[in-house]
């Protein structure tokens, strides 16, 4: 049932990958994921919430400058894994890594001497519920830069425009940059959050169900944006919506009960998954 949508949206994405991929030799139609170098290397990861084990031995390699989708039923651990990638889980009481490691560009991000702040600058995050600060659009976007001590007005203006353009929001808000970010519509707010994330120029953008609170039109805009963003950024997206995963991702990981069931190019997952559980889930028989 998802096949038509899938193939329709697959085409432009593969094209765009081809033009920018570090391995432009990938033949037409072949899933490009296979040739992209690994950026995030998760190895045998166990994760605990207090006494309960939320993730069991996850091993996953997220390719550079591609969209990787995490899918699975509620409570399967996909969001948890996502929040491990920039250590947002540190903020929750009683969480810890039991075993395994996560390496980004070969650096273990759970090493003792890692600066979490630096990590989060490199690994940005967009949340399920859009959370602009109750400040102006302009200030929302420059927030991260100001934290880094950048005060130069010209530079800030430039970044604001670039980020808003990057988030496909510039045309809609350029006349009211100093209006409150809370005055925007839901979809605009979410794109503002994305723009805010881009402004600090991360390498990786984590998206935690970014469209779950949006209407279909706003969702379409955000998805479009994702396609453009992957030219420059590596994107990991958690989604409940399988069509969305199919539409925008290059590789898909299916989680179930805290385990990684299958990780493969999106096309494979949706067309002919190896694992019967995956098959049952993507065909809508459970979940």
């Amino acid at each position: 049932m998802s096949a038509p949508t899938f193939s329709a949206s697959m085409d432009p994405s593969t094209k765009s990958i081809r033009t920018t991929s570090p391995s432009p030799t990938a033949p037409e139609g072949k899933p490009s994921a296979a040739v992209a170098p690994t950026l995030i290397d998760i190895e045998n990861l166990d994760f605990h919430y207090g006494a309960t084990k939320a993730l069991h031995g996850i091993t996953l390699k997220v390719p550079d400058r591609q969209v990787t989708a995490f899918i699975g039923p509620s409570g399967c651990g996909k969001s948890t894994l996502l929040r491990c990638l920039n250590r947002m889980n540190d903020l929750i009481d009683g969480t810890r890594i039991g075993a395994g490691s996560i390496k980004i560009r070969g650096v273990d991000i759970y090493q003792r001497d890692v600066d979490v702040i630096e990590l989060r600058k490199r690994v940005g995050m967009v949340f399920q519920k859009s959370n602009p600060f109750p400040k102006s659009i302009y200030e929302n976007i420059t927030y991260g830069l100001r934290l880094q001590g950048i005060k130069d007005k010209g530079r800030l203006d430039e970044v604001v425009e670039k980020s808003l353009r990057g988030a496909a929001l510039w045309d809609e808000v350029k006349d009211r940059l100093h209006a409150s970010g809370l005055g925007l519509s839901g979809g605009q707010q979410q794109r503002l959050c994305i723009a805010r994330t881009i402004a600090v120029e991360p390498e990786i953008i984590l998206m935690d169900e970014p469209c779950s609170a949006l209407d279909p039109i706003a969702t379409a805009k955000v998805e479009e944006l994702i396609h453009e963003l992957k030219l420059k950024y590596t994107i990991v997206i958690v989604t409940h919506n399988m069509q969305q995963a199919a539409r925008c991702s290059d590789k898909t990981a299916f989680f179930y009960l805290g385990k990684l069931v299958e990780f493969a190019p999106t096309r494979t997952i949706f067309m002919n998954p190896e694992n019967p559980q995956t098959e049952a889930y993507v065909s809508g028989r459970f979940g």
Binding site: A34, K61, I104, R105, I109, V114, E118, E203
Partner: peptide, 22 residues
């Protein structure tokens, strides 16, 4: 190039997240 060996293929000096603070 098989993806398994790729992690080493991206040694990036820019991804410096090691603490260096007062």
């Amino acid at each position: 190039m098989p993806p398994e060996t790729n992690s080493a293929a991206l040694p990036s000096p820019t991804f410096n997240i090691v603490k260096r603070r007062l």
